[in-house]
């Protein structure tokens, strides 16, 4: 029963990853990221209750507070202040990106096969999805040109990693998890400062302004 539920949540995560890949409005992107965090939280709670791993409750709480409340709040505020609603046209058009995404999912399922055989967890079927989430987020970072959507891609990649960790080994040690969470938080804060600096300097957040090489 629990296994079925976890598989459902995993497929929701994959769906969300594709949704993020195709979404061009930044506000909605953040909402999607929030839902992703929520799904991750539910998933962790379910795993914790079925396996009785107490520390997973803590990481679930951490996920909830950080990825559902704090980070989206920061991002929304940033969007409001920077006044960026839309990402410009992506480098590769969205249908082709989706096709590439499907190819990536196939590749990652194949790649995950040997790992799932090794893992002894109830969630081992979802490792392929976790890996696909990571790679899809990376793909999203490649195809976007606004700095802020890249940061969201980076955060959702971290979500994928977290998911991969919970599904292979029931999560990383608490210390590592705390460290990663803090890193992400600090990273976003610093990047926020950078955004303001970039906009002040170039009056736009488009990355192409940063691409002039210093000879």
């Amino acid at each position: 029963m629990a296994g079925q539920f976890i598989n459902l949540l995993a497929s929701i995560l994959l769906l969300l990853a594709f949704a993020m890949l195709s979404q061009r409005r930044i506000k909605l992107l953040v909402s999607l990221f929030m839902i992703q965090g929520l799904t991750l939280f539910t998933n962790t709670i379910v795993i914790a209750s079925t396996t009785g791993q107490a520390h997973l409750y803590y990481s679930a709480l951490l996920t909830l507070s950080l990825k559902v409340v704090i980070l989206p709040w920061i991002l929304f505020r940033m969007i409001r202040q920077l006044n960026v609603e839309w990402d410009v046209e992506t480098l590769i058009n969205i249908p082709s990106t989706m096709l590439a995404g499907i190819a990536i999912v196939i590749v990652s399922f194949n790649l995950a096969l040997p790992i799932s055989h090794l893992a002894g967890t109830i969630t081992r079927g979802t490792i392929g999805i976790a890996m696909a989430c990571v790679l899809l987020s990376l793909l999203m970072m490649i195809t976007r040109s606004k700095a802020i959507s890249q940061v969201i891609g980076f955060l959702s990649m971290e979500n994928g990693l977290f998911f991969a960790a919970t599904s292979t080994t029931y999560g990383m040690p608490m210390v590592v998890e705390l460290g990663v969470a803090l890193d992400v938080l600090v990273g976003v804060l610093i990047l926020g400062v950078f955004f303001f600096q970039i906009r002040e300097k170039f009056e736009s957040l488009d990355l192409k302004h940063l691409e002039k090489k210093e000879e």
Binding site: V107, M141, I142, K213
Partner: peptide, 21 residues
């Protein structure tokens, strides 16, 4: 060395996929 962030990300991505394979 193109100096474009997206290209560098692409290098990462391709390297990752190849290594995984």
């Amino acid at each position: 060395q193109q100096g474009r962030i997206l290209v560098y990300l692409m290098y990462n991505f391709v390297t990752l996929i190849i290594l995984l394979l």
